[in-house]
Measured scan of single mutants.
Amino acid sequence: KELVLALYDYQEKSPREVTMKKGDILTLLNSTNKDWWKVEVNGRQGAVPAAYVKKL
């Protein structure tokens, strides 16, 4: 499985998103959308802005 690093804090704004903190390591589930990537963090799945994460 592919991992990404959170470059910034992000507070979810809808139920389809997830909150992450700078430095979090997230499991990347889907990166086909260039703006929003689906990730899993702390057992929750949701979208985060692609510009806020970097593939490891």
Rank of each mutant, 00 (worst) to 15 (best):
37 W>N: 01
4 V>K: 00
15 P>V: 10
5 L>Q: 11
53 V>M: 07
12 E>Y: 06
10 Y>L: 02
27 T>W: 13
3 L>Y: 15
39 V>L: 03
20 M>A: 02
36 W>G: 01
48 V>W: 02
17 E>R: 06
21 K>C: 11
51 A>V: 10
3 L>M: 12
29 L>E: 02
48 V>C: 05
5 L>T: 07
41 V>S: 13
55 K>N: 06
43 G>E: 06
39 V>T: 00
32 T>D: 15
6 A>D: 00
32 T>V: 10
48 V>L: 02
28 L>N: 00
26 L>Q: 00
41 V>G: 08
10 Y>K: 00
15 P>E: 12
41 V>K: 15
43 G>Q: 06
50 A>D: 02
28 L>M: 03
26 L>E: 00
24 D>W: 13
42 N>T: 05
25 I>D: 00
8 Y>I: 10
40 E>F: 07
18 V>L: 14
28 L>K: 01
36 W>T: 04
28 L>Y: 02
34 K>M: 10
15 P>Q: 10
43 G>S: 06
31 S>G: 11
51 A>E: 11
11 Q>K: 13
31 S>D: 15
4 V>D: 01
54 K>V: 14
25 I>Y: 06
32 T>G: 11
26 L>V: 07
1 K>G: 11
14 S>Q: 07
53 V>Q: 02
19 T>P: 06
56 L>S: 03
16 R>F: 14
51 A>T: 11
32 T>E: 14
53 V>G: 01
32 T>Y: 11
9 D>R: 03
38 K>V: 15
54 K>D: 06
38 K>S: 13
56 L>E: 03
21 K>A: 09
39 V>N: 00
15 P>K: 10
44 R>P: 01
51 A>K: 13
19 T>C: 05
35 D>Y: 15
5 L>F: 10
26 L>F: 08
47 A>M: 15
50 A>T: 06
8 Y>R: 15
8 Y>N: 08
2 E>W: 14
4 V>N: 01
5 L>H: 04
30 N>H: 08
18 V>D: 01
27 T>V: 15
16 R>G: 15
1 K>T: 12
53 V>L: 15
56 L>Q: 04
27 T>G: 05
25 I>F: 06
33 N>H: 12
8 Y>L: 10
46 G>L: 11
11 Q>A: 12
14 S>Y: 07
13 K>L: 09
41 V>N: 13
9 D>G: 05
35 D>H: 14
52 Y>W: 07
14 S>F: 07
3 L>G: 03
23 G>F: 04
27 T>P: 12
54 K>L: 13
42 N>Q: 09
29 L>Q: 03
22 K>Y: 04
24 D>K: 03
24 D>I: 04
16 R>I: 11
49 P>L: 05
45 Q>P: 07
34 K>S: 12
45 Q>K: 10
23 G>M: 03
32 T>S: 14
42 N>W: 08
52 Y>I: 07
1 K>N: 11
48 V>A: 03
5 L>S: 04
34 K>H: 12
36 W>V: 04
4 V>W: 08
27 T>Y: 12
20 M>G: 01
42 N>S: 09
36 W>L: 04
3 L>Q: 10
10 Y>S: 01
9 D>I: 03
19 T>F: 07
21 K>F: 11
11 Q>F: 14
40 E>Y: 08
31 S>K: 10
56 L>N: 03
47 A>S: 14
15 P>F: 10
43 G>N: 07
18 V>R: 02
47 A>V: 15
44 R>H: 07
44 R>A: 06
48 V>Y: 00
54 K>A: 12
24 D>C: 08
27 T>E: 10
7 L>G: 01
45 Q>W: 08
44 R>F: 06
9 D>L: 03
53 V>Y: 02
33 N>Q: 10
49 P>E: 02
7 L>S: 02
44 R>V: 09
4 V>A: 13
53 V>I: 08
26 L>W: 03
40 E>L: 09
39 V>M: 01
45 Q>H: 09
47 A>F: 15
23 G>I: 02
28 L>A: 02
40 E>M: 10
47 A>Y: 15
33 N>W: 07
28 L>C: 06
25 I>N: 02
37 W>S: 02
24 D>E: 11
39 V>K: 01
37 W>L: 06
6 A>Q: 00
45 Q>N: 07
36 W>E: 04
20 M>T: 02
35 D>A: 11
10 Y>I: 00
12 E>L: 08
9 D>N: 09
47 A>I: 15
29 L>F: 05
7 L>R: 05
33 N>V: 05
45 Q>I: 15
24 D>R: 03
26 L>G: 08
55 K>W: 09
3 L>E: 07
12 E>C: 14
54 K>I: 14
23 G>A: 03
39 V>F: 01
19 T>K: 04
3 L>I: 09
33 N>M: 08
29 L>C: 07
21 K>D: 03
45 Q>F: 09
31 S>E: 15
5 L>A: 06
55 K>A: 09
29 L>D: 00
36 W>P: 00
17 E>K: 05
39 V>C: 04
48 V>Q: 00
18 V>F: 15
44 R>W: 05
54 K>Q: 13
53 V>E: 01
37 W>P: 02
50 A>G: 04
46 G>Q: 03
2 E>C: 15
29 L>K: 05
41 V>A: 12
56 L>T: 06
30 N>S: 13
48 V>S: 01
6 A>P: 01
49 P>G: 02
56 L>V: 10
37 W>H: 02
3 L>K: 11
35 D>S: 11
18 V>W: 09
48 V>F: 02
55 K>E: 06
17 E>C: 08
42 N>E: 10
8 Y>A: 11
20 M>F: 13
11 Q>Y: 14
26 L>A: 09
50 A>H: 02
28 L>E: 00
5 L>Y: 12
24 D>P: 00
32 T>A: 12
47 A>D: 15
40 E>C: 12
28 L>V: 07
14 S>W: 06
4 V>P: 00
13 K>A: 11
37 W>Y: 08
30 N>W: 07
7 L>T: 04
22 K>T: 07
25 I>A: 02
47 A>L: 15
